[in-house]
Amino acid sequence: MELLDRYLQAVKRHLPWERQDDIIAELRANLEAQLEDKEAEMGRPLTKEEAEAWLKQIGSPIQVAARYQRQQYLIGPAVFPTYWFVLRLAITWGAIIYSIAKAVDIAAHGLGAEAIVSAVIYLPWVLLINAAIVTLVFAAIEQVGVRYPGKCVPFAPMAPAWSPSGLPPMGVDEANKPRSFAKASAEVIFGFLFLGWLLLVPHYPYLMFGPGAWYLRLPYQLAPVWLSFYWCLVGINIFELTWKIVDLARGAWQRPKSRAKHLSMHTLSLIPLSVLLAAPDHMLFLLKKPEDAVTLGGALASANKGVHLALTIALAIVVLQLVWGAGKMGVEAWRNRVAAMR
């Protein structure tokens, strides 16, 4: 039957070459026997349409051949947990090391905003390459293990010799633990003390810098933008303290800190950072005497550039944390909604 020959030829193309002939010979014998039975039952040869329907019911050549493949996955269940653990480590540490290396490079060579943008754009590629290398290594481990099961030491998952007695003790869920009155009161008291200290710092710099207050004798001074930064900090602290006092007065101090509250405080922290980043010409430090610019101007420019870069990275980290937190809150809200609907 020509159609069967064509079908088997198509199956053969997708079979592992070393077993092709053997598998096709067996498949042919089985299908021909089946065809003979069908034709004997009907008392006539199958029509073209009937033969097509029969072969279609057996399955497409690719599907049939795929069932003869030894392995259908790149990384199997025994290796996968370790692969996933290593992959996450590689991506996290890859991002950290790359960011530090790039920040040092940019600061050392005095590169500008263009270099920062290029570094950020290149980051996903670095992480993708990391992930690809880890995946290739683990796929190779899997393949070797499957092909030479007797010759290879079986892949040991992480911590193979674990013992139940070695498990860590149950942790307390600090995030959802009700707060005590003493703790809530202490937070208000220390909040007042901190605010008092913050308000005194401009008049008594040694309260912040201690012996380091000698910096005041340096030929540099803080740019006016730091004053705006300072008042932002004072404003945020007053806002947080007021919130705590209201909680205490309303008896809401027992409630654990909500994710929304945490996120809103996190958002507020963007304001002082943004104020510093918006400093005109990134001038965060100035010379006390403008005539020193000839001798100290270079060092000052490097310092301003370095601090501005550090602040940009800090802002990026805060924004990422904020997005992550908001995403988690969204998922949590969606899950709660789905659970409530059930």
Binding site: A29, N30, A33, D37
Partner: peptide, 27 residues
């Protein structure tokens, strides 16, 4: 048994099984 008669014997006992599942399973 060879593949096809095995399939018929299983079907006769109520255990229907597709060709594309049985033959690779034997291998």
């Amino acid at each position: 048994h060879y593949g096809y008669t095995l399939r018929k014997a299983l079907a006769a006992q109520g255990m229907e099984i597709e060709e594309s599942t049985l033959y690779p399973l034997l291998r």
